[in-house]
Design a protein around this nucleic acid. Sequence first.
DNA 1: CGTATCGTTGACATTCCTCAAGGGATGTGG
DNA 2: CCACATCCCTTGAGGAATGTCAACGATACG
Lengths: 230, 230
Amino acid sequence: MSDCSSCTVRGRAICASLDSAELAELGHMGRRQRVKAGHTLLWEGDDAPLIANVLRGVLKLVVAATDGREQIVGIVFASDFIGRPFGKESPYRVTAMTDSELCIYNRSSFDAFAEAHPHLQHKLLRRTLDELDRARYWMMLLGRKSATEKVASFLLQMAERLPVEAGEPARSRTAFELPFGRQQIADILGLTIETTSRQLTRMRANGLLDLPSRREVVIRDRRAMAILAG
Amino acid sequence: MSDCSSCTVRGRAICASLDSAELAELGHMGRRQRVKAGHTLLWEGDDAPLIANVLRGVLKLVVAATDGREQIVGIVFASDFIGRPFGKESPYRVTAMTDSELCIYNRSSFDAFAEAHPHLQHKLLRRTLDELDRARYWMMLLGRKSATEKVASFLLQMAERLPVEAGEPARSRTAFELPFGRQQIADILGLTIETTSRQLTRMRANGLLDLPSRREVVIRDRRAMAILAG
DNA sequence: CGTATCGTTGACATTCCTCAAGGGATGTGG
DNA sequence: CCACATCCCTTGAGGAATGTCAACGATACG
């Protein structure tokens, strides 16, 4: 992998902190890999031997209870990174939700490289802080919001966070295609698939939404949706 | 504040990464401050003008919904740090739960110092990664566990994380005093105070617990508790 | 066209929350 | 030292929200 300079996420990923010499060095250590939707990269309790940048696709981070109940604890988009730098085992499973393309590094090499490149660590730190804020907001949603509020919050957040395809305005977007099905929405919100489905059906009945196909969503009344989100 | 070398959390806080010259420089920037239980240091939406190390005491990070429902999204113990380095507003309220002692820095000075001291950023990064893992585990608890499982998990985690007083073995501890009341336990677990109380009462009735006083807990059957925790 | 997967809907069960009352500890003033 | 107030916790009864189980419908795919 030598063409980091033409990378699709160059400028957005943590590598943006590197100059071209450093980039060449890092590029030498990494390899590009495609993974199919459904493929699991890292298992819960694994020694987490890899760090990766996401070039394309959407992945989920999953924590499972002993009896199989699952909670999605993070969603990873293009330009985000995956893995647990500095030697701890992965506390969650990482699974691709769509066909994805990654830029993978051996963890120990990556760690060593990071130690030697403070700018990279700085980027990592900022990203991790942002991710922590997001996780904490989500804790409030999981602990304190009703099913309706959860679904409304989820849709609004997806409208903002979902990667924009070719030349749409990012903020005002109101129609989008979710990269996941009902069960996965339920696993994100800490609900059952049935409750999730009923909430969506009701929102459609109330004219807040259109659901043109299984995974497409059109928010018709953003204002009302924001009120529902609590 | 000049006696960082004799600091109670020297060696455990992020400052452990600094040599004595650097420590002196940082010590120059900071000031010690005591805060009373109940005092709020940082408000949700604040510009988060400070970074602090906790020398003593326990603080909570709280996210509130628009209507006042509260979720505790983090608990901060001695040697942990508070605040949002690198310029974002605080997404949560920070309130002392016990009388506490802090070592406070102006954020912009701290940021500048951190930029110049990669070791410090490295420590910050490691801590933030650990905290993120903890937050994500808690997301699973909030989204997928029952009231009983939540309370049991909470007690076990407190037995491990609560600071140890004078010369007790850290791991095997089974009796401890919680630094918070029932309402705050409820706010940590995403439950109501009544449900929390009922769970504790039931565990006591089943011989899993003793509750010698309002805030004291003695785990009598750790094994059974671990099973209840799911 | 048939089959598998996913989503929706309904009936019912359960958990947890809400509202209300009472109990126990702690602190204060008399 | 006692009476009283306050705060926090516990307990109970009833209800609402969500989960469970089951059947059916729709969509995608071979």
